[in-house]
Amino acid sequence: MRLIALRTGRLIGLLWLVSVLVFLALRLSPGDPAAMLLGPKSGRVDIEPALAELRSQMGLDRSLPVQYGIWTKRVVMGDFGASNRSGVPVREMVFEALPVTLWLIGLALVVALPISIFLGIVGAANERRAIGRVVRLIATISLATPAFWIGIILIEIFAVKLDWLPAGGYVSLLDSPVEFAEHMVLPVAALATFMIGVLTRYVYAEAIEVRRQPYIRTAHAEGLPGRVIELRFVARNALIPLIAVAGAQVGALIGGAVLSEQLFGLPGVGQLVLNGVLGRDYQVVQGTVLITTVFVLLITEVAEVAYRLVDPRLRT
């Protein structure tokens, strides 16, 4: 009970911190949302009164604490405001973009996890043989290669040269499953390649550590076949902590996803924030970041709980 209270407190504290940081970062960076809205004419003197009016309409003439207070009050009541530019409510925009990002991350994980687990376990089992060396090399290359670079190569080959797949864009699964799949293949492949580097490295290191444990020696002393020892024992011991790590890495994975979205023109959360920042659309950026943060924190929490459920030592 106390634990739940503690966690909820921590969650709220984190959200508050994120909201303040985003708020400040936006206000302190140069660029005037009202001027952006009025477009290129805004440099002229005769536009000044209009500009001032717009500012006061948007509440930008108030002091920062007051602005923050007003915004927080609305958010607490579930109102994230609307886009300066389109007038569409921020909540709607986010809930339209979020599935795109989640699909991207989810599918990339579905691809990357089994491959990473296989590579990591087999690599560790053959630590000193060629297979081990190859696995370490794959992990290093995949980790050292920037995700956008992989993306560019994929686009170059499959979209430009071979013309098999679209180079970018998005079609909702509900509109056309086939087109959805076509549009997701390349971004998912790019993100998965990046993930494989991170995850393989992790599984490999964990498996190497597990293989040195006395309980693995016990398994060898019982004459168990190597296949059983590696795939059943080492794998389970090494993979349990992976759940927690995957949860904690959601932030980093979203970072990779943002890049991938940008490159492939996927209308996900990353795009939303990026366009919001470029257009000085304060409400959109603040709302999107906050809602996404809630999601990340929830996933991290769930992963931690799952970890506790799966590891018998932590079960109560």
Binding site: P214, T218, A219, G223, L224, R236, N237, D311, P312, R313
Partner: peptide, 28 residues
């Protein structure tokens, strides 16, 4: 190993696998 010569190690605390039930690891 195990079928003709078996061994019991010095350290009972770490010689059993922590994430498998006793019966499952014995039956393996």
């Amino acid at each position: 190993r195990g079928s003709e010569i078996a061994i019991v190690f010095q350290d009972p605390m770490n010689a059993l696998n922590p994430v498998f039930r006793v019966g499952d690891q014995m039956a393996a």
